[in-house]
């Protein structure tokens, strides 16, 4: 499970373009951002095509939610690690996310502080749960 240290390939899916850009900038120093997409369906297609190491998925997205996209990836590209980036703090969300095999759950207000740590943890084979969750 442990990957050799090096630049990982990351896919970013968020329906808010400024957020996508911000995330790309945030991660670009450590990783290769292979795709920026705006909905769950595009994320699944890009993931299947590009085979990234990790997919950062927003949950609330049009066309297909991040959760639904994760369900698909679990079936057709289960090697891709999934980290959710979201505003949802409700238990139902968190539970469903981890039930679907998510490796990380990061809350958006604290992205800058938590996301680099979360990604490192996940790529190292661990799971990350936002410190803001009770």
């Amino acid at each position: 499970m442990t990957r050799p240290v090096g630049r990982s390939r990351i896919l970013i899916a968020d329906d808010d373009a400024p957020t996508r850009e911000q995330l790309a900038l945030l991660l670009a120093t450590e990783h290769d951002v292979v795709a920026l997409v705006g909905d769950g369906k595009a994320a699944v297609e890009a993931a299947v095509q590009l085979g990234p190491d990790l997919a950062l998925l927003d949950i609330s997205m049009p066309v297909m939610s991040g959760i639904a996209a994760a369900r698909h990836l679990r079936k057709c590209a289960h090697a891709i690690k999934v980290v959710f980036i979201t505003n949802h703090v409700e238990t139902a969300y968190v539970e469903e996310a981890f039930r679907l095999g998510a490796a990380g759950y990061v809350l958006k207000p604290n992205l800058a502080a938590e996301l680099p740590i979360a990604i490192r943890t996940v790529l190292a084979g661990g799971t990350y749960r936002s410190s803001l969750l009770g």
């Binding site: 949950i59 609330s60 939610s65 959760i67 639904a68 949802h88 409700e90 139902a92 969300y93 469903e96």
Partner: peptide, 18 residues
């Protein structure tokens, strides 16, 4: 949530129902 359960769109009918 009361206005519109985004959980329905995001997590699907079963989770929302639960």
């Amino acid at each position: 949530h009361k206005l519109h359960p985004s959980i329905l769109d995001d997590l699907g009918l079963v989770v929302a129902m639960r």
